[in-house]
């Protein structure tokens, strides 16, 4: 029991715990749709690309979270624009944008004379999260969860069968655009705590594990949140006792949960199984 409570005696660890829980909830709620719509590579590009906004915001002395958000929105807008070119597949455009913005971020951050290290943003600094960060994340994350629950039905229709969805009145493209913005929000709230690389982990891995087990969307979302929070808190605990990097440890725990889930569900996905009807 001491193993569980000892780490959280200091207030900075309590803040780290809160920040991790917020990400553990919000990332899978959005990640469920990222996984279902096979947008994980966009999440990856988005998380790397926000580094440009982070770097420029730092250089300008603005809160980096605003910079990250701005870069995310810009990437989303450019993606929509470039995707109208039929010669290039969307995955090509995504890779070009993601790496270009990442490169801007690396160049800007390495030229800064503030001694800010790139690794701070790639892997996060969960131990130095402030109450201000937490309130901001709570507001942004809460808004994201509200948007997803308000649009739950629309997301379901647009994601399963976008043709039918349009026919019955769903604004499929608007839903897609909102989802891309939510993706940027997740990256932003992950930035300080787990970093941009681990943001993708939290976005995709818990939702992917949940996808293997869940029968319907509500289940998948709830399971994703359970996995996300469990992996976040578990990773934080393990990292405390092993003195390892919190962000990377959370990522490892998430990967381990996915591996176990995959193994457990393997027999179920075998081709020969009985259908209850006709």
């Amino acid at each position: 029991m001491n193993w569980l409570t000892e780490p959280f005696q200091a207030e900075f660890m309590q803040r780290a715990l809160l920040a991790t829980i917020i990400i553990g909830i919000v990332a899978p709620v959005v990640g469920t749709w990222v996984v279902l719509r096979r947008m994980a590579n966009l999440g990856d590009a988005m998380s790397h690309g926000t580094l440009a906004g982070v770097g420029l915001a730092y250089a300008a002395g603005v809160n980096v979270l605003f910079g990250a958000m701005g870069a995310g929105v810009l990437i989303a807008a450019l993606l929509l624009w470039f995707s109208t070119n039929r010669r290039l597949g969307q995955e090509t455009v995504i890779a070009v944008l993601g790496t270009a913005f990442f490169a801007i971020g690396v160049v800007v951050i390495s030229r800064l004379d503030t001694g800010v290290a790139l690794t701070h943003f790639l892997f996060g600094r969960v131990l130095t999260v402030t109450w201000g960060d937490i309130w901001l994340n709570l507001a942004l994350g809460g808004a994201a969860v509200l948007v997803v629950s308000a649009l739950f039905n629309e997301l379901r229709l647009a994601s399963f069968d976008h043709v039918q969805a349009e026919q019955v009145g769903v604004h499929v493209e608007l839903v897609q655009a909102i989802l891309v913005l939510l993706l940027a929000v997740v990256v932003v709230i992950s930035l300080r705590a787990v970093g941009t690389i681990m943001a993708v982990t939290m976005l995709v891995t818990p939702a992917a594990s949940a996808r293997l087990l869940a029968r319907n969307l509500r289940q998948m979302t709830l399971l994703g949140v359970v996995f996300g929070v469990g992996e976040g808190v578990g990773g934080l605990l393990v990292s405390y006792h092993l003195s390892s990097s919190p962000g990377a440890t959370i990522g490892l725990v998430a990967a381990a949960v996915f591996a176990v889930t995959f193994a457990i569900t393997l027999p179920r996905r075998m081709p020969h199984h009985h259908r209850p009807f006709g």
């Binding site: 039905n153 039918q164 019955v168 869940a214 319907n216 969307l217």
Partner: peptide, 13 residues
């Protein structure tokens, strides 16, 4: 992850 019931409800949108 959509059930038959949810699929049919999609028509009611």
């Amino acid at each position: 992850p959509i059930t038959v019931g949810e699929l049919v409800l999609a028509g009611r949108r």
